[in-house]
C-alpha cells in the first residue's frame, strides 16, 4: 500500500495528515491561510467533487483543480 495518496482519494470518515501541498504558489498560499498546511489532520466528511472536509474545528467545502496536488498520509478511519 502506498504511504501517501491525494486528498480527494480519502474515503468518507477517513482521517489523513497533510504531507505536502504543491502547485500554483498563490493557490497554495491561499490554502495555507485557510488552515490547510503540512502536518494538519483532516477528516473527510463527504467525498466527491467538491468534497467536504473538517480540519481544526471548521468545515470546508473544497473542489481542487488540476493545478494543485495535495498528498495526505491516511490515518485510522472512524
Amino acid at each position: 500500500m502506498k504511504a501517501f495518496l491525494p486528498l480527494f482519494r480519502l474515503a468518507a470518515g477517513q482521517i489523513g495528515e497533510i504531507e505536502s501541498i504543491s502547485g500554483d504558489p498563490s493557490q497554495v498560499h491561499r490554502l495555507h491561510e485557510l488552515g490547510l498546511y503540512q502536518g494538519i489532520k483532516v477528516t473527510m466528511i463527504r467525498s466527491g467533487s467538491p468534497c467536504v472536509i473538517r480540519l481544526a474545528g471548521h468545515k470546508l467545502c473544497f473542489r481542487q483543480n488540476d493545478g494543485l496536488d495535495i498528498q495526505v498520509r491516511p490515518l485510522a478511519g472512524i
Partner: peptide, 10 residues
C-alpha cells in the same frame, strides 16, 4: 483559464 479551486467555509 483554468477553473480555480473552490474553497468555502461551511
Amino acid at each position: 483559464g483554468q477553473t480555480p479551486s473552490f474553497i468555502m467555509e461551511l
